[in-house]
Amino acid sequence: MTIAPAGTSGSLEQDDSRSDRLVLEKPRTRRQRPSSQRSGTNFEMYSWIFMRMSGLLLVVLVLGHLLIMNILDGGVNRINFSFVAGRWASPFWRTWDLAQLWLAMLHGTNGMRVIINDYAERDGTRFWLKMLLYTSSFLVLLLGTLVIFTFDPNI
């Protein structure tokens, strides 16, 4: 790790591209805010809150879903088309599944966004990985939503 006092002129300034450079600022200088805050929004804070709020709901929704589908009363062995038709006859379970789908997809996509930001170091790699993530998440979310709303037991 390179340690350099801020505002030092000379050869150190050419080294600004290095992300691992720890800059020691002069006393009483105003703190340089990260770029997301400079733009005036608090996106990362809302993302942090969303992960906790959605996580809390998902604990109930997903663990309930897994308990019913995989463990109770024969688990996965009793699941087939008529089982799904029976469950989705009830607005309660359709609402459950819709909430679960949206919260899990957004929670998972945001988690993947954080992981891409952490490990993909090149700007271009980060950009394209996130485009791939957002596009595929959008398509899966759209498909899942359409399936829940347009399900037809007499297909």
Binding site: F81, V84, L101, A104, M105, G108, T109, G111, M112, I115, S136, V140, L141, L143, G144, L146, V147, T150, F151, D152, I155
Partner: peptide, 20 residues
């Protein structure tokens, strides 16, 4: 575990979509 669950979620939405 988060990444694994996320990839399974993709597969699971697609397999459930076959009810349609």
């Amino acid at each position: 575990t988060g990444v694994l669950i996320f990839f399974f979620l993709f597969a699971h939405v697609l397999d459930t979509a076959l009810v349609r």
